[in-house]
Simulated scan of single mutants.
Amino acid sequence: MSTRLDDAYQWANSADGPVLVAVEERQDHELAAGSHRHARGQLFGSMRGLLSVGVEEGVWLVPSSHAVWLPPHEAHAGRSHGPFHGWSVYVAEPACADLPRRPCTIRASGLLREAVLRACNWPIDASTAPLAPLAASRGHLAEVVLDEIRTSPPEPLGLPLPSDPRLQRIAKALIDDPADERDLEQWAHWGAVSARTLSRRFVSETGFNFSAWRQRARMMRSLEMLAAGAAVSAVALDLGYSTASAFIQVFRRTFGQTPAAYRVRL
């Protein structure tokens, strides 16, 4: 781990230091972090790919188009699906007083992403004096990040993952290849679980039946692909839809707008 990452993580659990510390991280392998908590609030997201985030409410799948907000002292775990390139912002606890009190996701706007990446270039040193104030220009940029957290409408955390290891294995396989067309019976056989158990436990552990969960997993992946600039027709084919119009219909039903309108919002 780099000195910068060491210093950032030390500030994450310190009441001292600047109001905001940001860090960008790249790993050529999957990132996995067991349950832990920070004294500071944390906002984090990925530049590409999907994250699984475990909080008190369950395990959730979050696309790169969104960022996760965790209040101070909130227990959480996380992992990336594939190599990780992402960022974290640690906010001093007093500055979290008017920020969301519960874990949530917000849309990672272009303004938020650019402000965070600029803050990632600030020098940080865990040996500096406690409560070191930010320079005026940095203080303004920090306030932009805090204001984005404060004013962005919280959205439901992406997609719940089942907790049963057999069902979770099936869910992760579908995340890796959303276009896989095997039906429930075939997935149950592959996962060494009865079709009845698979059907029943998917509902009890995620709130979605198997077909609805798979459809939503495709929709979460489509958000990532659209944010990366993929054409709507290419997204539809890559996710297993027979036509672009079929994909657009499901997208509109799920998110209340067309993929083109979503891209304009981005």
Score class of each variant (00 low, 15 high):
R4G: 05
L5M: 14
L5P: 03
D7Y: 02
W11I: 06
D16W: 07
V19D: 08
V23Y: 02
A32T: 12
A39R: 15
R40H: 10
R40K: 11
Q42D: 00
G45N: 04
V53L: 06
V55L: 07
S65R: 00
V68F: 00
A75M: 06
A75D: 10
A75K: 06
A75Y: 09
H81Q: 11
G82L: 01
P83Y: 14
P83Q: 04
V91Q: 02
V91K: 02
P103S: 05
P103I: 03
R113T: 14
A115E: 03
P133D: 05
S137K: 13
R138Q: 15
V145L: 12
D147I: 04
I149L: 04
T151Q: 14
S152A: 15
P153F: 06
P154T: 13
E155I: 11
L157P: 00
P160K: 13
S163H: 08
P165F: 05
L167M: 06
Q168M: 12
R169D: 14
A171C: 12
D177G: 08
R182N: 04
W190A: 10
R201G: 02
F210G: 00
R214Q: 12
R218E: 00
S222G: 04
L223D: 00
A228R: 09
G229T: 09
D238Y: 08
D238G: 02
L239F: 01
L239G: 03
Y241N: 00
F247L: 04
F251W: 07
T254S: 14
T254C: 03
T254F: 00
G256F: 07
T258Y: 02
A261R: 10
R263M: 14
R263W: 05
R263H: 13
V264N: 07
R265T: 12
L266F: 07
